[in-house]
Amino acid sequence: MSENQRLLMRLHPVTILCYISVSMGIAMFCMNPVMQGCSLLGAGIFLWMVSEHIVWQRIPVFLCFCLVMAAVNPLFYHNGVTVLFYLNGNRITLEAVRYGLCMSSMLGSVFLWCLSLPGIFTGDRVQCLLGAVSPKAALVCSMTLRFLPMYVRQMEKTKEQQRLLGLYRENALLDRLKGNLKVFAAATTWAFEHSMHTADSMQARGYGTCRRTQYHRQRFKRTDAALCTAIAVLAVTTVIFIKRGKAAMQFYPITDALPLGTESMTAYVCYAVICLSLPFLMAAARIKNHAAGRNR
């Protein structure tokens, strides 16, 4: 586990979910270049911190995706008053280009937020979240996670064995299909046997005797409570000031001027604090770590 991950692992999954959903949610519903910029920056750094190596492979895909999104809007949407040029007799307008850019950065940042999810929400954390809603669902999830790899392995073993016995080795499609079906049936029979034993094991350990508690290793600490409250307060403030400062811009037919009044500025600052503080903290911790490593 890297140093950055460790910082996150100290937080309760609910806190992280809260952080990501608020950052993502506000960005999704507020078309504003400043907000989108914040969101993109926050998501970018966050992803970089969470999963270091994967990011570089995905950056080209991500850029292409954004460019295509930015290009598609003006090509297909011809509203707006400022005509830049005509393409095949269709107007390409400045407003459409602006909207396309804003839209693509919004989609891009959502994409980045989502990319960082698997790095954070490992099986344990998902179960922790799920368990808060329904302990039974969490248990089923856990059991499935154990069972599926076993089932696949059993199927592979059976297949190997049947091949060794010289059965279904022919390349004829029908024969192979038949063989696979047989193997599937055999593995499923095995699965039934297995599930019977599992049921025994569950009963032997008192499953269904009384109300289950849900044990998870993450604790909701004071830091988590403080962070969640801070995020909630800031989020509410942001939303209020977005409304009051009309920070959500209109692009058609004429693009609004970028709202820069006190109220909208407050919204920007609040949002920036929400979505940038955690990534910056992580980055700072990392830089400090690097420096410490170099000094040693």
Binding site: G123, D124, Q127, P135, L139, S142, M143, L145, R146, M150, H194, H197, T198, D200, S201, M202, R205, G206, Y207, G208, T209, C210, R211, R212, T213, Q214, Y215, H216, R217
Partner: peptide, 28 residues
């Protein structure tokens, strides 16, 4: 049980240890 593969119910070691107590409603 006899077969070590057949008794575990959950996917993680820590969860397996907790499983029985979860069933008994022991607090976290």
């Amino acid at each position: 049980m006899q077969n070590p593969d057949e008794q575990p119910v959950t996917d993680k070691v820590w969860h397996e240890l907790a499983f029985g107590m979860e069933n008994m409603g022991v607090p976290s």
